[in-house]
Amino acid sequence: MPRPLISIGLVLVALTLVPIGCIYRARHSVKGQPRIQVVYDMDNQYYYKAQSADDFFADGRSMRTPVDGTVARGDLRAGDPFFRGRVEGDTTFVTEFPVTVDQDLMHRGQERFQIFCAPCHGLSGNGNGVVNIRATALAEGTWTPPSDLVGQSVVDRPVGHIYNTITHGIRNMPSYKNQIDPRDRWAIVAYVRALQLSRNASLADVPADDRAALENLGTR
């Protein structure tokens, strides 16, 4: 076989490696462009999706808020104790839970507390969560350390007051009504009460059966 032909062949074979290299690179790197759709199919259809944008409405959002003065089915917030933490028709805070406090509610409260409250107030409720640690480390001027939820001032507060604080916020704490459902707020209040109890308890308060386990924990 003549030499030039062999060279041409080798060059061609070498060139075929270039696209392979490109593919390898594409598979092992992050890219800023979405995938190229050769066949468009029906991937993008003209209907409103959650949180999508659209020019039809003045505010550019496809999701609409309820018309003023209307309430969606199941959204009626009737009952001051449950929804506002206050005595029916009054402004005083309720001192009794308007929900049944049981183990399920407690577990729910623990989970919700750890999601929504612990970032600032800490897992034990003492006010030293990760956000507080970071804000203090960054020496943020406007940062006020979160309240100690297991301290006497919160222990003394009626449950309705704590519920109200979650709903509307207090001082630097923002409102959590959009992130936490009313029932979950009560679950959190119940868990805060449990935390307070645990932080201010003595060994004598622990049921006899569990006492031994706790004592072992201490000596380990």
Partner: peptide, 18 residues
């Protein structure tokens, strides 16, 4: 190999980081 490589989602979709 080329067609598979170019069109497979491992190449085209994975790693999309706008």
């Amino acid at each position: 190999v080329l067609v598979y490589g170019v069109f497979s989602p491992e190449t085209s979709a994975m790693g999309y980081a706008p």
